[in-house]
């Protein structure tokens, strides 16, 4: 009898994490930003964004290295790291959030779904709560996530001196493009 109870417990404990903790990983996600003013257009791409998505709970976590943003102009990249982002002091940026409208997304069925994500975005060691829209596309075993939103450098304590104020937009357009695969350890 006792053995039977333990066996049941054992089975439950196997099943529960298998179901609830299925995760999807993206190792080489693409995040880029774009700033445009009459004086200057600035664009930088990061192709090594890492992220984990948990369909069952709706948890999404992103992490990226600031120094991995590549600019066309080497000097801009240097100033971005040295003067604006202080990437030696604050090397990484991350986002930890949840899909708010999880019920509307069927991860077991191919298709494109509108997703609302809410969570904490940390840039330059400053954390802000954000809520943004994006799309989640289920395509076979892969999950594709796309989002586009604006962020204001001043919300993240990024100081822009008067000499370059006219060259950097007040809000910077951020585009997120991720492809997740099932995660196996």
């Amino acid at each position: 009898m006792k053995t039977a109870i333990y066996l049941t417990l054992l089975l439950v404990s196997i099943a529960a994490p298998m179901q609830g903790q299925d995760k999807f990983l993206c190792k080489n996600g693409h995040i880029w930003f774009y700033s445009e003013t009459p004086l200057e257009t600035i664009e930088a791409h990061n192709y090594t964004v890492a992220s984990v998505l948990t369909p069952a709970t709706g948890d999404v976590v992103f992490q990226l290295l600031i120094k991995s943003f590549k600019f066309e102009r080497a000097l801009m990249e240097e100033h971005f790291n040295e003067n604006f982002m202080e990437s030696a002091k604050f090397p990484k940026s991350d986002f930890k959030g949840k899909i708010v409208n999880l019920k509307e997304i069927d991860f077991s069925k191919n298709g494109s779904y509108k997703a609302v994500v809410e969570g904490d975005l940390t840039i330059h060691n400053r954390t802000n709560r954000i809520r943004q829209n994006g799309t989640i596309e289920v395509k076979g075993t892969a999950i594709l996530v796309k989002a586009k939103f604006d962020i204001a450098p001043k919300d993240y304590d990024i100081e822009i001196p008067s000499a370059v104020r006219d060259k950097i937009a007040k809000t910077v357009a951020v585009t997120v493009d991720m492809t997740y695969e099932p995660y196996r350890k």
Binding site: S13, P17, K23, R184
Partner: peptide, 12 residues
């Protein structure tokens, strides 16, 4: 054994 199941592949 129970403890091991918590560390099953896929569990993260």
């Amino acid at each position: 054994l129970l403890a091991c199941t918590l560390l099953l592949p896929g569990a993260l």
